[in-house]
Design a protein around this nucleic acid. Structure first.
Lengths: 111, 111
DNA sequence: GTGGGACATTGACAGATATCGATATCTCTG
DNA sequence: CAGAGATATCGATATCTGTCAATGTCCCAC
């Protein structure tokens, strides 16, 4: 089960309707949903889904009305889940939606 | 924003990629994901997705290895989110997947 | 290389969550 | 209607989560 955790949840997710899900698969799915289980993080994904270009952290602090450390906290969660990507540009950090992960996420609900 | 909470989250959910999501829509989506953000509840949905017939609470206690009150706790969360339906049959309570909600959930990820 | 700006990490804390035992409610059976 | 069984609710508790201030780290400009 620990092996799966070595890769982001979004890369391991399987359709929730599959038969006989293992404990690891259950945990992976839960981790993935947990990453989206906060309005601030939904907003981040929403913003990234509508942006063709990567978005700077400083833009999120204004968008979310949260402190900079809190924004970093949320971004880290989404990054760990594999839902977004990070790119360093000089002193700035830019984030973008991982479109592959987003596509996999849709298949999770192939009932 | 409170109006939306009067209906189950699954009935109010909108695609996460829609532009200009309101605070209420963000909260609704987060509530929906929160309902799935636990391995036990993923397992419940998984079981219901594979069952053509409603499933009795007593079956879940065995399946999940959790106490009966804890199982009721999880079922209540999924019910409140609108992801599952409840049906009373005599002294027993049977739960089933809300297929309409499940379909809507898939559309949330229409990136 | 010093200073300043951008972001991440840490520490502390309030609030939410998952869990269980005990208890209440509800339904059938006798 | 008394008892038993199934489920929901309540109360208590341990753990997890979201938040911010303070601090650390990294990068650029001067």
């Amino acid at each position: 089960m620990k092996q799966l955790e070595l890769r982001p949840a979004a890369q391991c997710c399987v359709p929730i309707a599959d038969e006989d899900l293992s404990e690891a698969e259950l945990a992976t799915s839960a981790t993935l949903f947990k990453a989206l289980a906060d309005p601030a993080r939904v907003r981040i994904v929403n913003r990234l889904a509508n942006s063709p270009d990567p978005v700077c952290v400083c833009d999120f602090t204004a968008l979310l009305g949260l402190s900079q450390p809190t924004v970093s906290f949320h971004l880290k969660k989404l990054l760990a889940a594999g839902l977004i990507d990070r790119e360093q540009r000089g002193a700035w950090a830019f984030y973008s939606l991982n479109r592959v992960a987003a596509a996999r996420l849709k298949e999770v609900f192939s009932f």
